[in-house]
Computed example of a mutant assay.
Amino acid sequence: MLIHPQFDPAAIRIGSFAIHWYGLMYLMAFAQFLLLGRIRIRTPRYQNLGWTFKDLEDLLFAGVLGVVLGGRIGYTLFYMPDYYLSHPLSIFKIWEGGMSFHGGLLGVLLALYWFAKKRHTTFLVVSDLVAPLVPFGLAFGRLGNFINGELWGRPTDLPWATVFPLVDSIPRHPSQIYQMLAEGILLGIILWIYSSKPRHLGRVSGLFLLGYGVCRFLTEYAREPDAFLGLLGLGLSMGQWLCVPMILLGIYLMTFSKTKAI
């Protein structure tokens, strides 16, 4: 049995100024997006399309807006609609926590659509470029969850069971680490290798949707469901139900995408 270290939420403190771990994880995620994105746009197929580092920076800016706005709005709609309908001003209190990955994904998709129109290209060209850059950023986010001692797992007696003292004294799955390894690092490596060769347009995006949906669906069995929701139909969590359309769309793109690779 392990004990969560109860890290100081602030990674750096200088007087009254503090940089929090979660904010630092966001910065690391954005930095790796630019670093790995630069490697991808230097490949011949993207050079032939005229992609530049400025395009990558514009994509990141649009994506950040999509993540923040979509993540927050998605959380209010998917998880606590009754509360936020009764307290609409609380929607803007992002510092109190409450972000949804699936809402953030929808926000990013809208941002990619806007960028594709702005650049006079197709949505799938943009999404196929971005898809392999996302999982490693998600890994940083899950690491931030673990450092903050949030989104803990269900009780277990496995040797690496972890007690989160701010929650209770029950040994639990360190589900944040499971998700960091599965939907972050493992999926990132698979996507990076798969996308290193030309693929039919949309298949890289499809593999991301399918891979993330499956990884998240499975790791949710180790994660404690939200107390205010519990388990829903068929004993599945909200996170699992939101993964179902991702998996189906991913299978569709992987199966039926026949457009010639760029």
Rank of each mutant, 00 (worst) to 15 (best):
N148Y: 06
L34R: 12
H20E: 06
A111K: 05
H173S: 05
V68S: 03
Q240G: 13
S175R: 02
L69H: 02
G70M: 07
R119H: 09
L27M: 14
W152C: 09
G250P: 00
Y79S: 03
G206S: 06
F136T: 12
P135T: 13
E96C: 09
M80H: 13
F30E: 06
R142F: 05
A222C: 15
L109Y: 05
S195G: 03
P44E: 11
P165D: 07
D226C: 07
A227H: 15
P9Q: 08
F92H: 13
F61R: 09
G144M: 06
F53E: 15
F217P: 04
L85S: 12
R216Y: 11
P44F: 10
M238E: 11
N48K: 14
L65Q: 07
I251A: 12
L218Y: 04
L60K: 07
A227T: 15
Y194F: 15
L49M: 15
G23H: 09
S86P: 00
L85W: 14
P174H: 07
P174E: 07
L229H: 13
F78G: 01
A161Y: 10
H200P: 07
K197D: 03
L2V: 07
I19D: 04
Q6H: 05
R72F: 01
A18I: 01
L69D: 00
Y83K: 04
T76I: 13
F256S: 09
N148R: 03
L218N: 13
G202Q: 04
L24A: 15
V167T: 14
L151K: 04
L236M: 12
L106F: 15
G213I: 00
L85N: 06
I177V: 14
F92V: 12
G50M: 11
L234P: 05
H200D: 01
G188D: 01
L236D: 05
Y212N: 04
G66M: 01
L85H: 09
R38K: 14
P9N: 10
F164P: 04
L89Q: 13
I147S: 09
L242T: 02
D58K: 11
L77F: 10
S257K: 02
F208I: 06
G70P: 02
L253D: 00
K260M: 06
Q32K: 11
A111N: 07
G74F: 03
G70D: 05
G107P: 09
P174N: 12
M254I: 12
S100Y: 09
Y75G: 06
G144K: 03
I170R: 03
T156Y: 09
R45T: 11
G233M: 12
D226T: 12
A116P: 03
Q176R: 05
